[in-house]
């Protein structure tokens, strides 16, 4: 379990990193927290010719309020997301999900940008980004572009990033008034990849009807799975058990496509999706109602 030989660069700035990436292109891998890449290199599953270590690019590690949006640098450690008061204020959903992301030791090293760029369908953070409607900024030597989270994840371990681009920033919009949230997952042990997990955001109107809902699932397909059809059922409705049941049914039978693995059959994953949908929706709706609603 030793990595194959590679060339190692440690740029001090984003400009240097981008230049190196342009020079080495597809032969290079970016090293963020290294919590997925380094084991993969040690197994020789991944054998990059060039490793560009971003850990000294300090300009990419920040959490900043910018008007009503929160801006998070891609090299921000997962542990920071877990404890930063700005994150908790802007997005209780993200805060709630963080303890489920692997183990504290891993969160100390792992980064937001690293997890998103790795695009593991079983990871929590991509799901949260979709649920929150985050926007992601990529840079190359000649400029920058913004992507919706929806457009960023393009499949199993793949993203819309071009070989010369670095994910640099994540923008989280504020929650609308009367928004409730819930993150739940079922894992064999604390910190494991979950067998199934869901992030729910529900926004109610002044009358307690659902204005907007989002349900996004992990380990339920080849990327974060946005259950749009189920969310539509709730739109404009007064939430009740029948509606929730209908959503859970739709999600578990139709909208997700879990593959099953040695820890859980796809049938069990679907069953869990139903269980979690019911629980998470109830919690999100209840929390939405706590926000000064009659």
């Amino acid at each position: 379990m030793k990595p194959a030989p590679f060339e190692y660069h440690v740029p001090d700035s984003l400009e240097q990193a981008l230049a190196l990436l342009k020079e080495h292109g597809g032969d290079a891998k970016l090293l963020a927290g290294g919590q997925s890449l380094v084991p993969a290199m040690n197994f020789r599953v991944v054998q990059p010719g060039v490793l560009i270590d971003l850990n000294r690019v300090s300009e990419l590690a920040y959490v900043r309020q910018d008007g009503e949006n929160l801006r998070i640098g891609a090299m921000t450690r997962e542990r920071t997301l877990e404890i930063d008061p700005l994150v908790a204020k802007q997005s209780p959903l993200l805060e709630e999900a963080m303890p489920h992301v692997a183990h504290p030791q891993i969160r100390n090293r792992g980064t937001l940008g690293g997890s998103l760029a790795n695009a593991d369908p079983a990871a929590e953070l991509p799901v949260i980004m979709l649920a929150l409607g985050a926007r992601l900024k990529a840079r190359n030597v000649s400029g920058e572009r913004w992507m919706e989270a929806h457009d960023f994840f393009s499949g199993m371990f793949t993203t819309a990033l071009a070989p010369d681009e670095i994910l640099v920033e994540i923008e989280l919009p504020p929650d609308l008034p009367h928004t409730g949230w819930s993150f739940m997952e079922v894992a064999p042990r604390a910190g494991d990849y979950a067998l199934m997990g869901v992030a729910a955001q529900v926004t109610l109107d002044e009358n307690g009807r659902c204005r907007q809902a989002r349900l996004v699932y992990l380990n339920a397909g080849d990327g974060p799975v946005d259950a749009k059809e189920a969310a539509k059922i709730l739109g404009g409705e007064m939430p009740n058990d029948d509606v929730i049941e209908a959503m859970a049914e739709l999600v578990s039978r139709k909208e997700i496509n879990p593959f099953g693995n040695i820890h859980a059959s796809s049938d069990f994953q679907r069953h869990l999706a139903g269980v979690l949908t019911r629980k998470a929706l109830k919690q999100a709706i209840e929390r939405a109602g706590e926000d000064g609603l009659q």
Binding site: P188, R189, A190, G191, D192, Y193, I262, H263
Partner: peptide, 24 residues
């Protein structure tokens, strides 16, 4: 928790601590 998962070709499918679950 623990299970040595072999497929029909005699391949161990969970030869890492990520997939071979020891109780913590």
């Amino acid at each position: 928790y623990e299970r040595l998962a072999y497929d029909e070709n005699g391949q161990l499918l969970n030869g890492t601590f990520m997939d071979y679950h020891l109780p913590t």
